[in-house]
Write a protein that binds this DNA or RNA. Sequence first.
DNA 1: CCGGATCCTGATGAGGTCCTGAAGACACGC
DNA 2: GCGTGTCTTCAGGACCTCATCAGGATCCGG
Lengths: 226, 226
Amino acid sequence: MPAARILVVEDEPAIRDGIAGALRREGFRVCDRADGGELEATVDAFRPDLAILDVMLPGGRDGFALARTLRDRSDLPILFLTARDAPPARLQGFAVGGDDYVIKPVLLEELLARTRALLRRAGRLRASVVEVGDLIVDEGAAAVVRGGTPLELTRTELRLLGYLARNRGRVLSKLQILTQVWGYDDYDPNLVEVHVSALRRKLEAHGPRLIFTVHGQGYVMRPARA
Amino acid sequence: MPAARILVVEDEPAIRDGIAGALRREGFRVCDRADGGELEATVDAFRPDLAILDVMLPGGRDGFALARTLRDRSDLPILFLTARDAPPARLQGFAVGGDDYVIKPVLLEELLARTRALLRRAGRLRASVVEVGDLIVDEGAAAVVRGGTPLELTRTELRLLGYLARNRGRVLSKLQILTQVWGYDDYDPNLVEVHVSALRRKLEAHGPRLIFTVHGQGYVMRPARA
DNA sequence: CCGGATCCTGATGAGGTCCTGAAGACACGC
DNA sequence: GCGTGTCTTCAGGACCTCATCAGGATCCGG
C-alpha cells in the first residue's frame, strides 16, 4: 500500500509546520496550505486520502466551507481542528460518519493517533502496530498487550507510550516528549517523570524493563536484552 | 544521501567558529551568521536541514523571533542554545515536537550528538554508528556494544568515547580532548586521565585494550590487533 | 640504573537528577 | 450535583555523576 496522502489547511505557520512535520516523519505524504485558496485544483492534483482542517480560518472560507467543498468532490474523511471552548456541537452538521476532531492546542500524539484511526477505517492504512520486545502497541485500536496480557492504560499513558514506542532505540529528551505528548510550553521535567513512572509500573508488572533512563538526557525504549 | 546542511546563528565569534568548525569537520555543510539579518534570503538560498539558534542574540531579533521566521518557511528542526540558568521554560510555543536544546557553555561533543539525533529523526541522516574492532558506538541511541554485550556508560564517558572513536587511529592530546569534550579552559590533564581510566575499565571487561596511551602525547583509539 | 615526569586509579564529597507516594485540581458520566 | 477516574503538583529521599585529591605505578632520558 503506498503512503497515504494528507491535506493540511491551517493558517498559523508554527502549528501547520508542526503538524506537517510530524506527519511526514510518520511516512505520510503531506500537502500543507495556509488557506483554502485554489482548493479544488489542489485536491484534483494531490488526491488526498484525508484532510485536516482548521475550523477557524481568517477570511471568508473557514473549515466548514472547505469541508463542504471537499464533500462535493469526494468522500474523504476530515479531521477538524477546533478551539477548546468551541463545542464540537457545531461540527454536527458537517461531520459525516467518518469524521473526527481534535482540540487546539494540538497534542501531536493525539493527532497522529486519530489520523491513523481515520485512515484505517477508510481502508487506507494497515493496522499501525508497533512492537518492542514482547510488547505490542496498536495505536489504531488503542490497545496495548504485553506477553498476551492486555494492559489498561490511561489516555496520557497511551500517548506517551506511543511516542516512545515509535521512536524505540532513540533517546528522547524530556523537552521533546513534553512538546510532542503534551504540547507544553513550560518545561516541567517532573511531569514526564511521573507518567513514565506510572507507565513503568504497569508495563513491568508483566515483564522486564522497557523504558530506560539515560541520566541527564532523557528516556529510551528498547527490548530488554539486545 | 548528500551532506546535511546546517544553519548556525550565534553572535559570539569564538563560539560560532567552534561550532561551525566542529560541524564541518564532521562533514556537514554549514552556513554561520552572527545575527538574523537577511535570514529569509539565507534560508531560501541555503535550504538548511537543521538550524542551531542562540536564544539570546543582541538586537531585536533573538532566537525565538528567528525560530518564528524559520517556521514560516519550512518545518526544519531547531536546536536552541540556552544559558544554563535560563530554564528552557521560555521555549514556550516555539519548540515543536522535533526540537531540542543545548545549554551554554556548549560542550561540542554534546552538541554534535544532539545534532545527529535531530537529523536522524528528520530522516536527513543515516544511523550514525562508529565501529572500532568489536566495539560499536551508536551515539543516537546512547548505546555502546562490545562483542554483543551492551555497556552502561555515563554521559561523560559516552562523549569521550564518541570523540575517541570518531578519531580512531589518531593521537589526541589531552588538551584537545579537554576542549572538545569538556569545553574547558583551564588545563587539568588528570581530569582526562580519570575518565579514560573509567572508560577502560568498562571496555576492557569484554575484550582487549582499545584506548592506548601515547606517553607525553595523548591517547589513541584503535582495534586490538592491527 | 636513577630520578623526574607522566600516568593510573581508588576514595570522597558535593551537586544534580530522578523516582515515587500523596494530595489537590480537574473532567466526565451518571 | 455527586462520585469516579484521571491528571498535575509537590516534596523528600534515593540514586547517579563528576571533579578533585593523593598515593603508587610506569615510563624514559641520561
